[in-house]
């Protein structure tokens, strides 16, 4: 039986086990921030699924809630003023949000793991990289230090760190930014996770290094079948690495689809605005078609459609909550005028 939520991502996917349960299912997730005694919603009614060996890209600008969503999935929000107010996160038959810390720890690492944006701040500067990779392996696989070291060495070779047998005893500061991110990837892959979450994994890297790291992630996915959630502000990165895309704005998914269909028929005015804001690389335009205004503050969200104040197509109707329109089997748009606007240049 297929579970239908307000916004279901990818019901029929290219995965060979398409009728099986999705690996991860997020249902109506709501996250709020405690601010001056009030709860302000930052992620609203978010639902999506990820199947095995697929890559879901979540794209959005700062403040769209994309990082908070994955931090909530990873259980990294506890102790902060941000908390999940409702919703469920199903992973491997369990609701992650109901687990105790100990239960969650047993899932992290070999069930799911995460790559962070800034490799310098997420690696411990006073431990050798080999020891940092071995920590997770020893915790989850209960093996000897020697076995863990062999595994760490294999991993460093897999992520193409040159001269891995020397590098394994180096400290993070002795590596370049790209190499540090490779070490992060090695750590995340150490226990063969079913799901890898990468939050802006290449944003701090140069473009040529970014290409190498993205190619590496794709190659590893081919080998291991790991599912990936890739978060990025860069539509180009998403377009080239993901099968599925979810576009977030003000804490909501405003459009989601297979990558191919999304870029063929842009459904939401915001997605189109984002694309038209990027200066083209292979042609010249006199002026960019910039989205006017700015992302509204959390405590001053507009009524109805949250994109409405910046949207060139906005009408009176947009002051009501937009319906979720189905452009296609796998193409979902949260807009009153999705059917009329699709494909039309703004």
């Amino acid at each position: 039986m297929r579970y239908v939520t307000a916004l279901t991502l990818g019901s029929r996917m290219i995965s060979p086990v398409s009728d099986n349960q999705p690996l991860l299912r997020v249902e109506n997730l709501c996250i709020a921030i405690q601010n001056a005694g009030q709860l302000q919603p930052v992620v609203r009614d978010l639902s999506f699924e990820v199947q095995a060996s697929q890559t879901l890209g979540i794209v959005g600008e700062s403040g769209s809630g994309k990082s908070l969503t994955v931090l909530a999935i990873m259980g990294l929000l506890s102790g902060s003023p941000v908390r999940v107010t409702s919703g469920k996160v199903w992973f491997d038959g369990k609701d992650l949000l109901q687990l105790s810390d100990a239960e969650r720890r047993s899932i992290m690492g070999d069930g799911m793991s995460m790559i962070f944006q800034e490799p310098m701040t997420s690696l411990n500067p006073v431990y050798k990289i080999g020891d940092q990779i071995m920590e997770g392996i020893r915790h989850h696989q209960h093996c000897s230090a020697k076995e863990a070291r062999t595994r760490a060495l294999q991993l460093l070779e897999k992520v193409k760190i040159p001269d891995a047998s020397t590098r394994i005893d180096h400290y993070p500061h002795q590596l370049s930014g790209g190499q540090r991110q490779r070490v992060m990837i090695a750590m995340a892959l150490a226990c063969d996770p079913l799901l890898l979450i990468a939050d802006e994994p290449t944003t701090a890297l140069d473009v040529t290094v970014q290409k190498e790291v993205l190619d590496l992630i794709a190659e590893i996915q081919q080998d291991t079948g790991t599912a990936i959630i890739l978060i990025s502000h860069d539509l180009g990165v998403i377009a080239q690495t993901c099968n599925f895309v979810a576009v977030m704005y003000c804490g909501e998914i405003v459009e989601s689809s297979t990558t191919e269909k999304l870029f063929q028929r842009l459904g939401h005015p915001y997605t189109r605005g984002l694309i038209e804001s990027i200066p083209p690389l292979h042609s010249d335009v006199e002026w960019l078609n910039a989205i006017p205004g700015q992302v509204p503050a959390l405590n001053a969200l507009p009524v109805g459609c949250s994109y409405q104040p910046r949207c060139s197509h906005a009408q009176a109707q947009c002051r009501q909550n937009p319906p979720v329109a189905l452009l296609d089997d796998e193409h979902i748009v949260r807009c009153h005028f999705a059917q009329q606007l699709q494909g039309r240049a703004s």
């Binding site: 473009v207 040529t208 970014q210 290409k211 993205l214 860069d234 539509l235 180009g236 990165v237 377009a239 080239q240 690495t241 870029f263 063929q264 028929r265 842009l266 189109r272 694309i275 038209e276 990027i278 690389l281 292979h282 699709q342 494909g343 039309r344 240049a345």
Partner: peptide, 26 residues
């Protein structure tokens, strides 16, 4: 630079940039 890059490094830079291939009109 963009249509006839001469140096190998310029070509490497150009080919490394991830692109969105969107069609605005169907």
């Amino acid at each position: 630079i963009f249509e006839n890059p001469q140096h190998e490094y310029t070509r490497l830079l150009l080919s490394s940039i991830p692109q969105v291939k969107a069609r605005s009109t169907p």
